[in-house]
Design a binder for these strands. Sequence first.
DNA 1: CTTGACCTTCCAGTCACTGTAAGGTTTACA
DNA 2: TGTAAACCTTACAGTGACTGGAAGGTCAAG
Lengths: 131, 131
Amino acid sequence: MNISEAAKGSGLSAKTIRYYEEIALIAPASRGGNGYRQYDQKAVKELRFLAHAREVGFDLDESKQLLDLSRNPERQSGHARDLVMEKSRKLQARIAQLVAMQKQLLEMASRCRGDEGPECAILEDLAAVER
Amino acid sequence: MNISEAAKGSGLSAKTIRYYEEIALIAPASRGGNGYRQYDQKAVKELRFLAHAREVGFDLDESKQLLDLSRNPERQSGHARDLVMEKSRKLQARIAQLVAMQKQLLEMASRCRGDEGPECAILEDLAAVER
DNA sequence: CTTGACCTTCCAGTCACTGTAAGGTTTACA
DNA sequence: TGTAAACCTTACAGTGACTGGAAGGTCAAG
């Protein structure tokens, strides 16, 4: 199958698949007589694995580690679990940060009349020395 | 005052201040006889404004809009409010997305024994066709 | 007089792609 | 048979918001 079909089957774009090959995240695809990349079901499965790992928040390096783990029959499931738990912790921290930002935005907005006049607590807050 | 002091006073790094000048986010600083950039309290106040806007989640373009607004005595506070509310909505959506990711991570982890064996629901989940 | 802490510019790298250009190949159809 | 659309290829530039580093000029203290 050609790259666009592999893209459809995996959820990645053709561009992204080529990029993953370029950075050696996946093995170079075999080529047909016309130079086109050829993919089989196994390759598509790996691409889908990567797409899913990215979707749940792993970066490319972590996704690669998970993929390597999935390919290794001698693997220890603890390794996968560690990666997930570590990512979960980081995500939790990021969420807390965004929630704090969100809270601050709403608080600032609540103190700004939002009319045609120039007075605005938002702008004052942003200019303030301490916050 | 030289750039490192402006950095301290604003919460930005010297590198970042030069970068902001380069992309015309702020006006070019005046220079001393030695070619060093010179900053006054007004300039530091603007830098601090930008630092704060970035901290609460605005990108550089939005931060610039807010700064322009803060500089304009004819401003309408509704404009600032609109920017904040729009950012708040986007942030809300992003938070929801991260929370969903987090939930999925924890669910996957809960179904993986995490021992020396190779069986791992995490890896199975990531390889699955539908999710 | 030298050392170290500043400052300057310029260029490269980050991350994970995406866009675009310039070309080759295949497929469908008239 | 011609041709147009829809593929495919590589290569390079751009994104956002910086950060790091090189190579060099300046300044204050001892």
